[in-house]
Design a protein around this nucleic acid. Sequence first.
DNA 1: CATTAAATATGACCACAGTCATACATGACC
DNA 2: GGTCATGTATGACTGTGGTCATATTTAATG
Lengths: 211, 211
Amino acid sequence: MTMVMIEKDDINTSLREKKKTETRNKIFEVAGRLFKEKGFEDTTIDEIVREAGIGKGTFFNYFPSKTALLLYFAKKKEDLTFSQIKHEMTRSIPTKEKIKNTLVFVAKTNEKDKELTKMFVFEYMRHYGMSSGQDERSSHRLSNILYGLIEEGVKKGDVNSEIELKKAADIITGIYFHSLMEWLWAKNDYSFSDDISGKIDLVFDGIRGEG
Amino acid sequence: MTMVMIEKDDINTSLREKKKTETRNKIFEVAGRLFKEKGFEDTTIDEIVREAGIGKGTFFNYFPSKTALLLYFAKKKEDLTFSQIKHEMTRSIPTKEKIKNTLVFVAKTNEKDKELTKMFVFEYMRHYGMSSGQDERSSHRLSNILYGLIEEGVKKGDVNSEIELKKAADIITGIYFHSLMEWLWAKNDYSFSDDISGKIDLVFDGIRGEG
DNA sequence: CATTAAATATGACCACAGTCATACATGACC
DNA sequence: GGTCATGTATGACTGTGGTCATATTTAATG
């Protein structure tokens, strides 16, 4: 996946709009390249604006902060991932498998570029809590999808109808993100998707013993 | 709970050691007060050293970064919490209740000072991933405690002996931290300890339906 | 084309975390 | 007490993210 995504190649726009789009794309292009080359922390805004041929103040006309720029990249990637998930949802398989497939798919997306994911997750965490609450958190997006799957599972009968749907979706979401972070910063390497897969089994069957 | 904790009131120390302890305590005293008064972000190091009557460089002889200072406060509080938990562990009650009690206790500790917890968790997250890996993550501490409880539960027979202990402990830890973050930054207020309690029930019984 | 208002661009500037060469204080040894 | 090695203190300095008053560009109006 490339981090650079050119957008809005509008035809019917004023000179102003055209220049704005051009500048915006130039920032994406340069920042995307530099982030990939040297990482987020080691890329300075001064560098970005120098290579993009714009003034420093201009950068902040387009993005409120350096972090916001990275989060924009992250959101684009996330949008792509979630849109791909939608397809999977229509297949007729047991709920557990559906949930597993969904999470394994997202996990594999992350596994494809561990460093990039680390960068995104790290900056996402930094940003977390500062946000004015208006931008949807990706944990909520995942939780909502899971909610839908579990709800469907209750109707089909392969999910216990006694449970609170929101709690269940929340639990799985929590397991997912915690596992992701453990995997990202683990000393030894292992398969994140396998790990998450095993955990879904566990949470479906429960921990309780027979005794 | 006060954020200031004076320590090492050694008797048999050299003048050097005495001065060091004095300076260290002065930093704790001033920083603790300022963090409480105006929050972590809005307290500058210049302010701390000015009020503490030391040079700026001196601060960095004692703490490698501003964040390290806050994490030190956090660790102290965490140590206290975990040491209190140890007592609970010896009581003879079902494993599920033991786990529930443990998490509810930690949750209640957090509930007592939401703003302080938010500050700690937020800076902890910022720091996460940067850490050279040598400082034990509090998620690992919790996970280890849960591991012990689950292991004991298997022996007693009230935990399914088929499960992987580490996975189970990990799952509960993940649920805990995700729930904590959701609670900390939720728009509406609710009981975090009740929330976590209900989730433990769910994860013990499993999500699966009868069908 | 001239005038004007609004959008956009800009870089000097600021605040703040963190560094480092230098100065100073302490205590060990004579 | 005098000398010296080593531990500690210091603040001028640096790097970087972000701001803001001002300049420039665009386009609407007559």
